[in-house]
């Protein structure tokens, strides 16, 4: 069953159409990699999925439930948008960790705030806090950061920061975890540790969308590849087809330029 269905998304910035009629389907536990040259709309698409940008047209469906409709969007309350947004998690290129919280604090914060706003918090405060902390510690351990939990972001390497950011996104148990060029801001020797973690997640039945420039990684980890150019989906298919048998001229050119550099 399709976990996500995107239909006819159009998005403009200052009269420039940056996403043109984007439609695709993502199955549960699939990993989708979005590739393409910079400025092609990949990041904007992820930001639309996470409700950081609002498309003018199009629909988004999760588990056959419509969570976005360009026509009805203005009538949605902030609380509804927040709820819809939580179907997705987003890992940013530049981590965007909260500098005044430790690694553990970063992972726990959103859950703690969510719990505090619920009526039963006062009664079960201790148990709730303990459960949140336990989950956060498990996630950080899973990310290989068991001895870094009490460090602040400025005391961590870029790769460690990005792994904290992944744990932070996972803490909200999103249906679909999105990565926006997760290794682009990292020194080359640090990309491996982050890619390894993402690969592990893909093997554990997580549904993910990864915008990346790491072609070898996309090929290895993805079940499906979308090639975007100039705001359009030019070609999509399984990795073997995209990389070995590209049909469109634009994709052939793109892959060629990757090899000859």
């Amino acid at each position: 069953m399709a976990i996500l269905e995107v239909k006819g998304i159009n998005k403009t910035f200052d009269d420039t159409l940056v996403l043109k009629d984007i439609s695709f389907v993502l199955e549960e536990n699939q990993v989708l990699a979005i590739i393409g040259s910079s400025g092609g709309g990949k990041t904007t698409l992820l930001r639309c999925l996470n409700f950081l940008e609002t498309p003018e047209e199009g629909e988004m469906w999760i588990h056959d439930k419509k969570i976005f409709d360009g026509l009805e969007n203005k009538t949605l309350s902030e609380a509804q948008i927040r709820e819809n947004r939580l179907h997705f998690g987003l890992v940013f290129q530049s981590f965007n960790l909260f500098p005044q919280y430790t690694a553990l604090g970063n992972v726990m914060l959103a859950r703690q705030l969510e719990a505090k706003s619920k009526p039963d918090y006062g009664k079960n405060k201790k148990e709730i806090e303990a459960a949140i902390e336990k989950q956060a510690k498990e996630l950080l351990t899973q990310m290989g950061l068991e001895d870094r939990m009490d460090n602040y972001p400025h005391q961590l390497s870029g790769g460690q920061c990005q792994r904290v950011a992944i744990a932070r996104a996972l803490a909200m148990s999103p249906d679909i975890l999105c990565f926006d060029e997760p290794t682009s801001a990292l020194d080359p020797e640090l990309t491996g540790e982050v890619l390894r973690v993402i690969k592990e997640l893909s093997e554990r039945d997580n549904t993910m969308i990864i915008v990346t420039h790491e072609m070898a990684f996309a090929r290895e980890v993805a079940d499906k590849i979308i090639f975007m150019d100039d705001g359009r989906i030019v070609e999509e298919g399984p990795p073997e087809q995209i990389f070995e048998n590209p049909k469109s001229e634009r994709l052939q050119e793109f892959l060629q330029s990757m090899i000859t550099v």
């Binding site: 996470n50 927040r82 940013f92 965007n96």
Partner: peptide, 12 residues
């Protein structure tokens, strides 16, 4: 990015 990070985590 700080505000955006909070938003995608569902904070008000």
């Amino acid at each position: 990015g700080q505000e955006e990070a909070g938003m995608v985590l569902g904070m008000t």
